[in-house]
């Protein structure tokens, strides 16, 4: 038996179900019963109860694409600050003669290869160095809203603002545009999305904001 409705807000210690075998992310079992261990929204995914956290630091997950700042370059490892729990590392393949062309302070866009007790590894395939732009930090829980359904929101932002976006699941976003005016408009739009992530009809609001700001700068 379940003691919640889908998408309910739960708090640590709340009883969720009698059957402890359905324990997913953000839950724990005690005496065969299932309880919440984090604050967030409960959902049943593939018959497993899991909690979608609403706050807290970014917890890396395999396959996530993240934006990070290179914090240290060592002989055989590169450390990247992804504003998560621990710094992530990039390891070039062994006997690689050409060193990675990245240095301390560079902003990179990469995929999380593995997460484990030894830390987070970033994949070397598809590793991009972001040349320039404005780094914006937002709540990682609200990144899905910025991306939108199948990337609809980002596509719209790209089209309306004329800027390039690197959206990291860790809550870091880089905006790079042809002129300061459009970059400013894009950052304003991101802030609007973070502030009003829960409001319906957000896409129209963002389009209106962008057109207003862009119109103002063109004239």
């Amino acid at each position: 038996m379940l003691y919640f409705n889908e998408n309910d807000l739960v708090i640590p210690g709340q009883l969720l179900a009698d059957n402890g075998r359905r324990s997913g992310y953000g839950t724990y079992t005690r005496d065969g019963k299932l309880y919440a261990s984090t604050t967030g929204l409960v959902r049943v995914v593939n018959d497993v109860v899991r909690i979608i956290p609403l706050s807290g630091r970014y917890k890396p997950q395999r396959g996530d694409r993240v934006v990070g700042i290179v914090s240290d370059v060592k002989p055989n490892v590169v450390e990247v600050d992804i504003s998560g729990e621990l710094t992530a590392v990039i390891k070039p393949p062994e006997r690689e003669t050409t060193p990675l062309k990245i240095d301390i302070g560079d902003c990179v866009y990469a995929e999380v290869k593995s997460v484990g007790i030894r830390g987070t590894m970033l994949s070397i395939e598809g590793l991009q160095k972001i040349p320039s732009g404005i780094l914006v930090k937002m709540n990682p829980a609200k990144i899905p809203r910025l991306i939108g359904r199948k990337g609809s929101m980002v596509q719209m932002l790209r089209k309306e603002s004329g800027c390039d976006f690197w959206v990291g699941r860790n809550g870091l976003v880089v905006v790079s545009g042809p002129d300061p005016g459009s970059e400013f408009a894009a950052v304003s739009a991101i802030n609007l999305i973070e502030r009003e992530a829960h409001v319906p009809g957000l896409t129209e609001k963002v389009i209106n904001l962008l057109r207003r700001l862009r119109g103002g700068t063109v004239e």
Binding site: N7, I11, T39, L41, I52, L54, A141, K142, R145, H198
Partner: peptide, 18 residues
């Protein structure tokens, strides 16, 4: 305590449509 926590996240449920 429960009330204070729920008040903090009251408005967010609709916000997470990934």
């Amino acid at each position: 305590q429960v009330d204070a926590l729920k008040r903090r996240y009251r408005v967010e449920p609709e916000g997470l449509e990934a």
